[in-house]
Design a protein around this nucleic acid. Structure first.
Lengths: 142, 142
DNA sequence: CAAATGTATTAGAATGATTCTAAAGTGAAT
DNA sequence: ATTCACTTTAGAATCATTCTAATACATTTG
């Protein structure tokens, strides 16, 4: 895998800013994750992508790294399917379409959805995040 | 476990109406699930409840039955936690609070939430369901 | 710039939820 | 009662994820 110097510096910056040590594995995964716009990846998909790119990286490292990036606030974890976790490189407030048949997530910008009224939280609890998930089906054929 | 005749008849009805054969296991689990207001259960929690109630039932049957009830529209499956599935006996349109620290779901009636604008679905797809999940944290101690 | 220190990475085992298998049981229809 | 299809079962299998404890690497120190 070739990281051009510019991207590499950007990613190294991102990692440092997040308080993470800059290592080969993290740089390479950051490049895959953050070098191409907003993405939704599963651990396994990222692993395959890394291998396809010629990286030598273990599945454990992929999991560790995704969890560290998530803990550091670089990724958001999305739970829409009981079978696996998705990691979303878009950490701004936003929502999702989920195509169950294709196990595919699609971002919805925050301003595309208006939630104009919410109930009060139970006493002793605060709202961490409001998620809107629109589950989609394939339209019937005419 | 004692099922009073009235509840038993109700549950048998519910099963038949859903196109499911009325069996011992299904009757007993239906009684636990639907005999006490709206509930959110995990497969494991339901198993323990069944055993505590003196039922002799295998974990496989609990899973099979939950999946059948779900497929038959008697239960709704809620994915808020990657570790396990919740089954919700409330199948009307509604939403959820989720207390992550306690792995606990709380129903929100549909009329407590106003979603006044949604984006168009991608071409070729229809909305199956809109879910709003409000993730809660414990309030800091004053 | 080499040794020391602490953090990362690894392969492989372990875990935990869920599903599968194939054998034995039960409900419904004759 | 007999048959036939559907259920239930124990236990094995699967799959995503986490853990372990050994090796490698990044950073600090001398």
């Amino acid at each position: 895998m070739r990281l051009n110097e510019k991207t590499k510096a950007l990613m190294a910056n991102k990692l440092s800013a997040a308080g993470l040590r800059v290592t080969q594995a993290r740089l390479a995964l950051a490049h895959l994750l953050f070098g191409q716009g907003d993405r939704h990846v599963t651990a396994d998909a990222l692993r395959e992508e890394a291998l396809a790119a010629g990286l030598k990286i273990s599945q454990a490292t992929v999991y560790n790294t995704l969890n560290q990036f998530h803990a550091a606030g670089l990724l958001r974890q999305v739970q829409v399917d009981q079978a696996r976790s998705y990691f979303d490189t878009n950490i701004d407030t936003h929502h999702h379409f989920y195509v169950e048949d294709e196990a595919r997530l699609i971002d919805i910008a925050a301003q595309e959805v208006d939630v104009t009224r919410l109930p009060d939280s139970p006493k002793g609890y605060d709202v961490d995040r409001v998620e809107v998930i629109i589950r989609l089906d394939k339209s019937p054929k005419a």
